[in-house]
């Protein structure tokens, strides 16, 4: 039996909003450690990895590890039926062919129950090496979202370069070009507004903005986003997931293969 209860059901709604347009079908791996998912987009250009720790749930029971394969747009449609303040409980019996979602409204007697069909998916699992990166940048997630959205007006790709204590996002296209330069901020008065840059070596690399704009759909999950870059390896864009108390619940990590020079 698998059962996971989340009083802040909105977190699960936000997670699905952040992945459903990138990946159609994926499997949740549920174990005593928690729920995790790893999937590539259909073009195999990017990969998303989600982790929700067992102790972040308000109740978590997983008698034996289960793989819950599902259509994420179906799951997302069902989660739209839950209110933002609802408690969400996921339930799956061992060897069942569906997952049950129970939504409970706060301070009300209303509960609703939905079922989503499970699928047997042929998932490829990729091993991601834990390597140090040349550049790590932490910045406000809304700023990253804005930069990606603005630069997609100009071109299809962004060139990210980092030198000393600044990071530069540049795009060019038929209409012209645009650049956004961010410098490390000095004060830590409001940590969520800060930009911090740690650089081992300068870097310059290009990425498709279409994917970065998909990743930015995770913005409501976290006030800060972390970018990690090294020469000739995928970019990592990470949003940590915290609950209202600020406790660490897990993360969404997106990996994006670079573009090579035209």
């Amino acid at each position: 039996m698998f059962e996971a209860k989340l009083i802040q059901g909105a977190i699960l709604k936000k997670i699905l909003d952040a992945i459903k347009d990138l990946v159609n079908e994926a499997s949740w791996d549920c174990s005593s450690q928690g729920m995790s998912l790893q999937a590539m987009d259909t073009s195999h250009v990017s990969l998303v990895a989600v982790q929700m720790k067992a102790d972040g749930f308000d109740k978590y029971r997983c008698d034996r590890s289960v793989t819950l394969g599902m259509n994420l747009s179906s799951l997302s449609k069902i989660l739209k039926c839950a209110g933002n303040d609802d408690t969400i409980t996921l339930k799956a019996p061992d060897d069942g062919d569906k997952i049950t979602l129970v939504f409970e409204a706060k301070n009300e007697s209303e509960t609703s129950e939905y079922e989503v069909k499970l699928m047997n998916l042929d998932s490829e699992y990729l091993g991601i090496p834990d390597t140090p990166y040349s550049v790590n940048v932490k910045m406000p997630s809304h700023k990253f979202q804005r930069i990606c959205r603005d630069l997609q007006q100009i071109g299809d790709a962004v060139t990210i370069s980092c030198a000393k204590d600044s990071i530069r996002f540049a795009a060019k296209g038929d209409l012209g070009s645009g650049t956004v330069n961010l410098c490390q901020t000095a004060s830590a008065d409001k940590p969520e507004d800060s930009v911090s840059i740690s650089m081992q070596e300068p870097i310059i690399q290009s990425f498709a903005l279409k994917y970065l704009n998909h990743f930015a759909k995770a913005t409501p999950l976290s006030p800060q986003v972390s970018l990690s870059l090294s020469p000739d390896v995928p970019l990592v864009v990470e949003y940590s997931i915290t609950d209202d108390d600020g406790s660490d619940f897990g993360y969404i990590r997106y990996y994006l293969a670079p573009k090579i020079d035209e």
Binding site: M40, S43, H44, V45, S46, L47, E124, Y125, L126, G127, I128, P129, A208, V233, P234, Y255, L256, A257, P258, K259, I260, D261, E262
Partner: peptide, 14 residues
């Protein structure tokens, strides 16, 4: 897009 690399070039299948 011939300039776009694929993600599975970088990570090994488990």
């Amino acid at each position: 897009d011939k300039y776009q690399l694929k993600i599975d070039q970088f990570f090994k299948k488990m």
